[in-house]
């Protein structure tokens, strides 16, 4: 009898440990959910897009259980730092300013171009009004130049502002703008493409070095076996830059 109790207790204890272990490795992935094709809420109300597919694969390779959450773009870094989730995977370009606050993994898309989109091809990009999403590298770039910057909380609103005539042009990632130009026929790419940022990476708290190394290794393995390139071409088209 005594033996039975002891072994049950031991079993309960190890079971407890096992659940504690699996809880500890639940990684919460934070994304914006409003930036197709990087990440968006699909018609079933689920988070979808390039980063959803990539993130799920990376979690399998890094052997962690992942859970997806959405968060507004303008508070996405503060909420990572305060621990609401563990990783930002939201089309966030690696920049020095952000690197001072959080840490980045290596990039999982190559440094890419940003572009201007407008209703006609003869807008004044030098002195006009340019719409960009708040706290993006594109907004920072416009602010440095002579054009007037108006900022919006979501990328969707920047397009709407340009369509309404509130802004002369939108400045954003070319990968985000491409479907709008190709599918609507109302919008045009204007001016030169601008290379900005050091590619898109996952953002982590500076103290989370172990998790960062796990994801770095997973990204490397996806770069080596070509699965990352396949995924990039699938979501961003055949002319997208690959590794």
């Amino acid at each position: 009898m005594k033996k039975l109790i002891l072994s049950t207790a031991a079993l309960a204890l190890t079971a407890g440990l096992a659940t504690a272990e699996s809880h500890a490795t639940t990684v919460r992935l934070g994304t914006e959910g409003a930036y197709p094709p990087f990440n968006f809420i699909d018609d079933n109300g689920e988070i979808a897009g390039f980063e959803r597919e990539l993130g799920d694969e990376l979690c399998v390779r890094a052997e962690v259980t992942c859970e997806w959450v959405t968060n507004d773009w303008d508070s996405i870094i503060p909420n990572l730092v305060s621990g609401n989730y563990d990783v930002i995977i939201a089309g966030m370009s690696i920049t020095d300013e952000r690197d001072e606050v959080i840490d980045f993994t290596q990039n999982y898309t190559p440094p890419s171009n940003s572009a201007y989109v407008a209703l006609s091809e003869d807008v004044d990009l030098e002195n006009g009004i340019i719409a960009a999403q708040t706290a993006t590298i594109q907004a920072a770039h416009v602010a440095e130049g002579s054009a007037t910057l108006i900022e919006f909380a979501t990328p969707d609103e920047t397009i709407a502002a340009m369509k309404n005539g509130e802004a002369d042009a939108v400045f954003a990632d070319k990968d985000y703008l491409k479907p709008f130009v190709e599918e609507t026929g109302e919008f045009y790419f204007v001016g030169e493409d601008v290379p900005l940022g050091g590619g898109v990476g996952m953002g982590l708290r500076e103290s989370d070095t172990e998790l960062k190394e796990k994801f770095n290794a997973a990204i490397t393995s996806m770069k080596e076996d070509g699965t990352l390139n396949t995924m990039i071409t699938k979501w961003f088209g055949d002319d997208a830059q690959t590794y």
Binding site: A34, P36, P37, F40, I41, D42, D43, G49, N71, D72, S75, T154, D156, I159, A160, K163, P179, F180, E183, T184
Partner: peptide, 27 residues
């Protein structure tokens, strides 16, 4: 407060949808 209420879904559903979605539509 970031709670997904009626306003959130109205804005999310109403926004212009490209072919990344099953049902593309304008704004």
């Amino acid at each position: 407060l970031g709670i997904e209420d009626v306003v959130y879904w109205a804005r999310e559903l109403g926004g212009r949808k490209t072919s990344a979605f099953d049902f593309p539509h304008p704004d």
